[in-house]
């Protein structure tokens, strides 16, 4: 790189020197061609106007690698029916393919079939029925384009995520692995809408025996890049 800069610099210097030398020679040789050279310089200024270009080496370029937004959907909490879920996500795009993402969401769990049928005492208090999770995931994009019509084209990406976090439910925090897939449609350079599907897997003892529960959620979201 350095040698390249140096060679460009040197050749620029050489060109300048040559130009100065040749002009002074021309002026020294023949004064009658003064008018001609004036014309030349005028023409030159027409061809190369003195534009002020702002250089990239000093300017800070607005980089948009962060993405933040909200999502809403339905989560099926194993044994506790389905509920509405509302969450927030923030992502940092490392390369065009990979990103890391943190998300947080909460829902109010419903009742088990047993609670409804028996009409007896509820398993959980209202507070314990609050379901919330956070997780940190790594994601991979498959970038593409969508043609809604011939001239109406949007950039998009199908992405897959895998991550870990914690789910608070039934008064306990549970280590949770989450696997997800989603689709991001970029309506503008910085505004995107999402459709996503995620499975939150954790071990639970709420029903008595310990078992692995799958809590599948899907939903839509919107994010902005900044």
């Amino acid at each position: 790189m350095e040698t390249r800069i140096r060679s460009i610099f040197l050749s620029a210097c050489a060109a300048c020197m040559a130009l100065i030398l040749s002009t002074s020679l021309v002026i020294a040789q023949d004064n009658s061609s003064d008018d001609q050279s004036d014309n030349d310089s005028q023409q030159k200024s027409v061809i190369q106007p003195d534009l002020k270009r702002r250089d990239i080496n000093q300017a800070s370029i607005d980089s948009e690698n962060f993405e933040i937004g909200l999502f809403a959907g339905i989560i099926s909490i194993e044994d506790f029916s389905s509920s509405a879920i509302l969450g927030a996500r923030a992502a940092y795009h490392i390369t065009e393919d990979f990103f890391v993402e943190a998300s947080y969401a909460q829902a109010d769990a419903g009742e088990t079939s047993f609670e409804i049928l028996s009409g007896g005492a509820p398993f959980l208090t209202d507070e314990e029925r609050e379901y919330s999770y956070y997780n940190v995931s790594v994601g991979y994009n498959l970038n593409g384009e969508v043609f809604l019509s011939e001239n109406w084209v949007f950039n998009s990406a199908t992405y897959f995520t895998i991550g870990a976090g914690s789910t608070e439910f039934g008064g306990d925090e549970n280590f949770t692995v989450s696997i997800g897939a989603g689709y991001r449609l970029l309506l503008t350079d910085y505004f995107a809408v999402h459709v996503g599907l995620k499975d939150n897997i954790f071990n639970s003892e709420i029903i008595g025996e310990e078992k692995t529960t799958h809590n599948i959620e899907y939903g839509i979201g919107a994010t902005v890049f900044f």
Binding site: A59, D62, S63, N65, H93, T95, E96, N143, N155
Partner: peptide, 30 residues
């Protein structure tokens, strides 16, 4: 057309042209 290799090339700017750099996403420049 987009900030990744997967997006197709839709235009070629020639030698000597000036281009304005608007923004950056990862290692791509609009």
């Amino acid at each position: 057309t987009g900030p990744a290799l997967g997006f197709p090339v839709f235009h070629v700017a020639a030698k000597g042209e000036w281009i304005t750099v608007i923004k950056r996403r990862t290692n791509w420049f609009k």
